[in-house]
Every structure is written in C-alpha cells, then in structure tokens.
Design a protein around this nucleic acid. Sequence first.
DNA 1: ACTTGACCTGGAGCGCACTCCAGGTCCCAT
DNA 2: ATGGGACCTGGAGTGCGCTCCAGGTCAAGT
Lengths: 154, 154
Amino acid sequence: MLTDMDYYTPGQMAERFDLTLDTLRYYEKAGLLRQVERAPSGHRRYRADDAELLHLIRCLRDTDMPIARLREFAELVRAGDHTIPERVEVLQSHQRRLDEHIAELRVRQAAIQHKIEYYLGVLAENGHRAPEDDSPIGHTHPTDHTSRSVEEAL
Amino acid sequence: MLTDMDYYTPGQMAERFDLTLDTLRYYEKAGLLRQVERAPSGHRRYRADDAELLHLIRCLRDTDMPIARLREFAELVRAGDHTIPERVEVLQSHQRRLDEHIAELRVRQAAIQHKIEYYLGVLAENGHRAPEDDSPIGHTHPTDHTSRSVEEAL
DNA sequence: ACTTGACCTGGAGCGCACTCCAGGTCCCAT
DNA sequence: ATGGGACCTGGAGTGCGCTCCAGGTCAAGT
C-alpha cells in the first residue's frame, strides 16, 4: 500500500537526476519510462522503481547509449523478470563498448600529450636562444615548425 | 621547393584520417584548415603540415572538442609560432577536461556493473529455487524486483 | 571522341537529443 | 478572490556535426 510519501514529484525527480522536466517528459514519450501514474491533478507521480530505472538510464545516457537502445532496454524491463538474462547481455555489451571507448580516448590523449611536449620543446629552445620575433608586420618564416620533426606528420 | 610528391590529394587525406571528402571540405569551410592550395585543375592539394594539423584535429575531435574550439585553435596555429604558449594552454585544459570525462565514465561504468551483478544475483537465486514463471498470460507480481534491495533506489 | 573517375560548387537535408513555448489547469496561501 | 507556483499539453524550434545532392570541370585511358 502506497502513501503520498512513496511518490516523487517531477520536480524532485528532475533535481535528483539533474535533468529538466522537459527531458523527463521526453524520456517518457520516447518510451524510456513507462506511462507514469498521475495524481488527481494530472501531475505525474513517480515511484521508487521509476527512480531506480531512471538512475540506470542516466548512467547509460552519460556513457552515450543512444535513446533507441535505451528504449529497447526499457521494454525488456517492462516485459518482466524473465528478460533479466537479456538485460544482462545488453549491459555487458555496453560495458565492453565503453571499455573500448575509454581505451581510444586514452590513445588520443597520449597523442595530444605528445603534441604538448613537442610545443614545450620548441618553447624551451626559443627560451634560451632567440628571445622572440614579434615584428609588427608579422608573416615570417611560415615553415619553421615543420623543420623540427618529420614523424610529426602521422 | 615542393614537388608533386610533397602534396596529398583529398582522397589520400580522407583515407589516411578516415573521414569523408565532405567532412574535409566542411572542416575547411569551418576554418579548421586554412584555405587549401589548388592544383591547376582546381583540385585541392594538401601539404605535410596540413596533414599534421589534421591529425591533431582528429585527436581533438575524437575526444569531443567542439568544432568552434577547434577553429579557435586553428586560428592560433595560423597566427604563428608566438601563439605556442596559448596553444599549450588550450591543449592542457582539454586534457584536464578529458581526464575528468574519463573519470566520470568510469564512475558510471561502476554503477552499471553494480546493476549487472544485482541481476546476476537474482538469476542465481532463481536458478536453484524456482525454475521460471512463464505462464502464457504473464503479467504477474509486478513489484518483485523491488523487494530485493532498497538502496538500489539511488 | 568518349568514358571514367576524382574532384569541384553551393546549398539543402538529416539525425539526434533535447529545449522552448503558448496557453491551460490545479491547489494553496494571503 | 487573487496570485503564485508547480505542473500539464502539443507542437515547433534549436544546435551540432556532418551528409547528400545536382550539375559541373578536368585529365587520363581506350
């Protein structure tokens, strides 16, 4: 038996999961949340299990699961407990893609770091050799930075 | 002095960095690449330093730097070597945001993992107690999965 | 002379995930 | 009874990053 205290208002849900009322409604329309119960006033009231699902949805969205896949997942949830094995597979496959994604981010990050260090090298060199060329009219030696390292190209 | 061999065709650039000719032109229009030289035919020809910059752009895009910030960075590059300190700051600040982003992904991933393990727990329990309820008409005990763990809610 | 393939242009269109808005209802406190 | 605040609806609009297209040029091969 549920009392008033067992429900959350749209505002509470929005605040708790840091999203807007619009987004909340959008998720409902998109099928991520079931058609939510209403108070006599017509206002939505969310239950604990809506919050639980929304929490997971938030995690999955934050890790870039597209809305369409989230809708499929939400349908599994609505279909009942016998879909738990399928849900596990969906989540595990998501985790694997996430691992790959993070790995790729790290690779890119390393490449950027390499560039930063190249720049720092240029600065160190200029620092104790030539002060700085800032002639007002500029536009000098346009190929200077290529002379440094050839492998920079790939 | 540059010979024909020192240039890359649009097709070569596209293949090398795994993007389309359209994207390459889009990047140019958006100011990520300078107005590129043309062969007498009108076809673009890219130099080694275009490739070098595009490589960095690719890394930055792959780590979600927006086009607008990339354009700013590209403007620094065009402005000459005296902007290197600024470029370093841009890149370092990007690295920091990237660190934070990866950290957040890991947090979300852990939360998802927690859910997976919760599901696996349910399966293990059902596995050696009740085989499965798949009565054709379904729609039974809709609150069963809430009974398990209250802290699941946040 | 003809075809093929690589590339060109300007501009329209697309997919995604929201985000905004006008106009309305309901409830509560002054 | 009036005002304010929280929420409602349907539908249009937004921003981003491409992506596609029609119609054209150019150079090389057959």
